[in-house]
Design a binder for these strands. Structure first.
Length: 500
RNA sequence: GCCUCGGUAGCUCAACUGGUUAGAGCAGUGGACUCUUAAUCCGAAGGUUGAGGGUUCGAGUCCCUCCCGAGGCACCA
């Protein structure tokens, strides 16, 4: 910045311009020969470790243990010959005691007059227990580590404004302990998932985000353009098809944990970019995927110390989709296999408010599921046996007679009234897969802009021979919502998509 | 995309059915204070009430348009 104008200088003096006040202090530090942005600060101890070291110290007890800590200054009490301050680091908070007779007038003034709330400072000092039983550090030396030129969020109320909390997540993290806890929990959940799958012999892999065709889910994509190749590419909506090619290649157990992108609405459970885990296991089917999902999620819940209302431990409830719909609505969708007959029953029912006009049979089934069943599934529940029309990559359901039920071997898992996972016995018959793509192509011609694109290279991969395979997708954001007790995806995504 | 609600000081919130000069706490600022912890006490300061237009003697408050957010619907795993 340039020199403050006379107006700015007077605004700094009377304290009306908060930014100018801070810049004036920055200038004072520099004038006193203090570097307000030094390069490092060696030998810092996490505050939590300092606390652990002195656990059980009696009220009023002194120690001769010297500590070096660093963090953001959060609060300050007292302005005279002694002051107390609170310092935050990533591991916790600790009280500092600054005494004039220890520091001398010059250092005391630096701490009280030139350092602001929100500044990053380093402290050398001795631990003691205050008379009121608060572990504290008696400051012997301070080091300015970075001047904060903007005021921090309210020290007591934190930052409440939803918009600012999401657009300026750093402020949310500084001001709101809850937010910090939730995102620490998210990181631990993700690393426990990796630990679990790695322990089961899975390989973590990376497949393309930029794809010439989009597939593996029913959704509209984001489109972008590659200049040198002179062609459009799509941001992936799923990792499914590439991962199955790796199963063909013999990797046998693979997973990918990363972002998918879907060009659709934003809601409390939808963000345009979201984190998905997909795994594929050779010589396994949908039942194996279900067992592994239970094992994985209950491991994660225990490892991160989940303490909420959801019972993640095995076994989870398992039902059929049709059974669950009948339970909630009294409608047996399998007894009415055409859109007309199902629509008639839906219309006649007083237990659902689904509007059947213009809906196909699979759409109606989906409507009944999402309106009448899904909201009821608060505890972890897996629903099996989905209509083939909604599942272009799943194997048809085995039956004793060999008859075609129109169902596939697939389940979706739900918790807190949200879908969190989706799995099936992967279709590995290339001719059947080709027919499913052709059916999707027909739907696209009819104007369904979410139909699957015909992916010939994927069919060729299946022609190479894919072993029987169980695959699963787990929505990480939604799992984190459940495990952190948050109500929306925006609370568990660091920087959710916002308007400009 | 549609409906409803909201946007007031840097932050957290007030302001009855349209009526004096839009209030308070925190932060900041000047001062007092050597065990405080949402420290306390005294003083002064801080506002284009999201933006723009309109109705009215008078608008934070009513109407219109736009921006941003929240909730719901639609779309969608």
């Amino acid at each position: 910045m340039t020199d403050p104008t006379p107006d700015a200088a007077s605004a700094a003096e009377d304290g009306t311009d908060l930014l100018a006040v801070r810049r004036a202090k920055l200038d004072r530090l520099r004038a006193a020969g203090v570097d307000p942005f030094p390069h490092d600060f060696d030998g810092v101890e996490p505050i939590a470790e300092v606390r652990a070291r002195h656990e059980g110290l009696e009220d009023g007890a002194e120690t001769d243990v010297r500590h070096r800590i660093a963090g953001r200054l959060r609060a300050r009490r007292g302005q005279g010959k002694m002051a107390f301050l609170d310092l935050d680091d990533r591991s916790g908070r600790i009280q500092l005691q600054a005494k004039l007779d220890v520091l001398g007038p010059e250092v005391m003034s630096r701490l009280l007059d030139d350092v602001d709330l929100g500044d990053l400072i380093g402290i050398d000092g001795v631990a003691f227990m205050s008379r009121r039983g608060e572990l504290s550090i008696r400051v012997e030396a301070i080091t300015v580590l970075a001047k904060s030129l903007r005021p921090p969020p309210d020290k007591h109320h934190g930052l409440q404004d939803q918009e600012v909390r999401q657009r300026r997540r750093e402020l949310d993290l500084i001001g709101n302990e809850d937010t910090r806890r939730a995102f620490v929990m998210r990181s631990r959940i993700v690393s426990e998932i990796r630990r679990f799958l790695d322990g089961e012999g899975f390989l973590e892999v990376e497949t393309p985000v930029l794809q010439p065709l989009y597939g593996g889910a029913l959704a509209r994509p984001f489109t972008t353009h590659h200049n040198a190749l002179g062609r459009d590419l799509y941001l992936r909506i799923a990792t499914e098809l590439y991962l199955k090619r790796l199963i063909v290649g013999g990797l046998e157990r693979v997973y990918e944990l990363g972002k998918n992108f879907r060009n659709e609405g934003i809601s409390h459970k939808h963000n345009p970019e979201f984190t998905m885990l997909e795994w594929y296991e050779a010589y396994a089917d949908v039942e194996d995927a279900a067992d592994r999902l239970e094992a994985c999620v209950s491991h994660v819940a225990a490892a991160v110390g989940y303490e909420g209302e959801i019972r993640w431990t095995e076994p989870w409830a398992r039902k059929t989709l049709a059974g669950a719909i009948e339970e909630e609505t009294g409608i047996d969708v399998l007894a009415h296999r055409t859109s007309e007959s199902l629509a008639a029953v839906v219309r006649a029912s007083d237990r659902t408010d689904v509007d059947p006009d213009g809906r196909t049979w699979p759409q109606l089934v989906d409507d009944l599921l999402s309106k009448d069943v899904e909201p009821k599934l608060q505890q972890p529940t897996m629903l099996f046996d989905y209509p083939v029309e909604l599942s272009p990559f799943a194997k048809r359901k085995r039956t004793e007679t060999g008859e075609d039920t129109g169902l596939v071997e697939r389940f979706e898992a739900f918790a807190l009234g949200m879908e969190i996972a989706n799995a099936f016995s992967e279709l590995n018959d290339p001719d059947e897969q080709r027919r499913r793509f052709e059916e999707q192509a027909r739907l696209e011609l009819e104007g369904d802009d979410e139909a699957q694109q015909y992916d010939e290279s994927f069919v060729e991969a299946l022609e190479q021979g894919m072993p029987p395979t169980g695959g699963l997708g787990l929505g990480i954001d939604r799992l984190v919502i459940c495990m952190t007790g948050r109500s929306t995806i925006r609370e568990v995504v660091l920087f959710p998509t916002m308007r400009d």
